[in-house]
Amino acid sequence: MRKWILSNLVFGALALASVHASFAVAHEEHHVECNETGMNAMHADIQAMDEGEAKTTATKEMKMAEDMMAKKDMKACADHMHNAVEAIEK
């Protein structure tokens, strides 16, 4: 029984670690993270953009990322931030 609990704990820890790693790795090339620092950096990037389609897209994606972060959906948040970065670096 102890062995079973221990193996489940190890498995659970590994699963959690891999989920966390996947968020980071998926956006490694842009180094964006769905947290307050990442959000602030993106807002600073958007402020510096000229008015136009790219800025509108980036702003919309950031709004959706914030909504997802508020709902604790970190995967969707990271996806929207990634889309915002693509618009910024276009």
Binding site: A44, A48, D50
Partner: peptide
Amino acid sequence: KRTEISRGLYPRAPELRRK
């Protein structure tokens, strides 16, 4: 690609390859 410095400056330094 954007550098560590360009990403950390505030306000952001304008990318001069753009108009």
